[in-house]
Amino acid sequence: MKNKKIFIDEAAARSLAEKRFIQTCGFDLEREKHQRMMKMGLKVREDGIAGIGIKALISFYGPEHFSDNGVVIDDVQITCNYFAQVPKTAVEGIYFYMLTAGECLFSSEENIMDFLYADIWGTNYVDTGIQILTEQHIQKDMEARFSDKQVYLSEEFGPGYFGMPVIETRKFASILDASSIGVRVKESGLMIPQKTCAGFYLVYNRADVKAEPSCMQCYGNADGCQFCAIKAKMKEEA
């Protein structure tokens, strides 16, 4: 499966996106003030809904593309310090993805709340899209592809996670056919539309390969992983 294009209908994502919106804004809809604010937020979504379009790409690659030094696809190498913590024999495959939600357009640049609510809607449609993409497409493909063995999906890896530089988005755009879903990447690594994300999951044959929270936030260099207590612990348990 290479560059499989997925379209997620806005209506299918609306309920989850709305729940996320309420949580992000911290609304208590029992309160009259928050009810009024929610009404404003819903109007912003309805005004800008024409700009929301959830599109995604998925590609699967075998374990031969993974090593301690990174993931290499067609001579494009993506590095991540945390890979030094992952036993190579535990990796069964890699799912790359890119997803864009487009942009929730807002009616007035003079109204800061319109801008804020539109931005929150866009972020929550991205997060909802990733949830749907993962649960209904990637995990289902994984179950069918590895029907003869027990496998597990890793945490999300990607630019901004585990110390991976944001500029690496350019490599994701190269591996995936970003332009086919209307995404382009600037020299800085910024993806356009801005409500776009890219990353990948590793498929493990072991349930115990899990990233510690300290690994996700770590900005240490790759050599530091050689002396990390977490890596030593994982080797002992292997």
Rank of each mutant, 00 (worst) to 15 (best):
N3A: 07
K5I: 11
A13C: 11
A13Q: 05
L16H: 06
A17L: 03
A17I: 00
E18A: 13
R20M: 09
L29G: 08
L29P: 04
E32S: 12
K33T: 13
G41M: 01
G41S: 09
I52C: 12
G53K: 14
K55Q: 15
H65N: 05
S67P: 04
D75Y: 07
V76P: 00
E92M: 12
E92N: 10
E92S: 10
F96P: 03
F96D: 09
Y97F: 15
Y97G: 02
E103A: 12
M113N: 04
M113H: 09
M113P: 01
M113V: 00
M113E: 11
D114Q: 11
L116Y: 14
L116C: 09
L116Q: 10
D119I: 00
G122P: 08
T128D: 09
I130A: 02
I132L: 13
I138N: 09
D141F: 02
K149C: 02
Y152G: 00
E155G: 06
F157H: 12
G160L: 04
I167D: 11
A173R: 01
I175P: 02
L176Y: 10
S180T: 12
S180M: 04
V185L: 09
M191W: 07
I192R: 00
I192W: 06
P193G: 04
P193Q: 00
K195L: 04
T196F: 10
T196S: 15
A198L: 05
L202V: 05
V203D: 00
A211R: 05
A211M: 06
Y219N: 14
E236S: 02
A238G: 05
